[in-house]
């Protein structure tokens, strides 16, 4: 009985989790006629027509490039800062730790609209609307809570003996951090990097405000704004969506254990 329920629920969960996305992948492999068939055709003829079209007519590769630049830079910057902050909070004597973590928690919960207008104005006055740094800076801010939280929880689990012996051997604080602690916390760095990358790759709200010129837009903005002449170009939207999602699916398949660990780091250790 229990076993049966287990198999039924598991199958249903997997089915519903994957179906909508598989349907979109399926759509992206259809021909123009198959996409607009009424009722829908279930099996595609497997052409790459829409991929070619979204590259040629909708600048897909351009969006991909922008997304890689933005998400890549955000990951590097956020992780570097998170290593510093996480280490200081987890292992060093520092006043107001609770306040710092509280402030970060608060930032992670801000609805974006509550800072959107001012962020836009700050970037405008710097002339950074429609520039990579204009999007990277707010993203770093918004991903710092996640990064710091994960790094702090990983640093905290390391044994203090290594640190102590490094100090006794005459390592400076900086050397201890970079030569001993960071290599030991590498799994944490990696976990945080995956999550930050996914966030930056997927973010839409700020990208929409800040990147108003197509030249700088990221994948989510591109996909949200695809417009055909008369109707929505569903085939191209599906193809671009598949392209935007495949890297994430790979990350999830390869690193699901880490991702789950990172998501629950700090949150669930009651």
């Amino acid at each position: 009985m229990n076993r049966l329920a287990f198999y039924i629920v598991t199958t249903l969960v997997i089915f519903f989790s994957l179906l909508p996305f598989l349907w979109f992948v399926d759509t992206s492999l259809k021909t123009e006629i198959e996409v607009t068939a009424i009722p829908p055709v279930l099996l595609p003829s497997g052409t790459l027509h829409f991929y070619r079209s979204s590259i040629e007519n909708y600048n897909l590769l351009h969006y991909v490039k922008n997304s890689i630049i933005v998400a890549g830079s955000v990951t590097v910057i956020t992780i570097s800062i998170s290593i510093f902050t996480g280490y200081a909070v987890a292992r060093l004597r520092l006043k107001y730790k609770g306040l710092i973590m509280g402030a970060l928690l608060m930032v992670s919960m801000f609805p974006q609209i509550s800072i959107a207008g001012p962020v836009w104005r700050i970037l405008q006055s710097l002339g950074w609307l429609n520039s990579y740094q204009g999007l990277i800076l707010p993203y770093v801010t918004l991903t710092l809570p996640l990064g710091v939280w994960i790094m702090a929880s990983f640093f905290k689990e390391l044994p203090s003996e290594l640190e102590d012996s490094a100090k006794i051997d005459g390592c400076s604080h900086t050397q201890t951090l970079f030569k001993i602690m960071v290599p030991l916390a590498a799994p944490g760095v990696f976990t945080a990097a995956i999550l930050v990358f996914i966030y930056a790759w997927n973010e839409f709200f700020f990208a929409l405000l800040i990147m108003t010129q197509q030249e700088f837009q990221t994948l989510p903005v591109g996909i949200a704004l695809f417009q055909g002449q008369y109707t929505l170009p569903w085939g191209e939207i599906a193809a671009a969506s598949t392209v935007a999602t495949i890297p994430l699916v790979l990350l999830v398949l390869l690193f699901q254990r880490r991702i789950v660990r990172g998501l629950s780091a700090g949150a669930i250790k009651g």
Binding site: V13, N202, V221, V249, V252
Partner: peptide, 12 residues
């Protein structure tokens, strides 16, 4: 499989 919906961009 369960993580895939979470990882997909909301726009997608």
């Amino acid at each position: 499989a369960v993580l895939i919906p979470w990882a997909i961009p909301t726009v997608v």
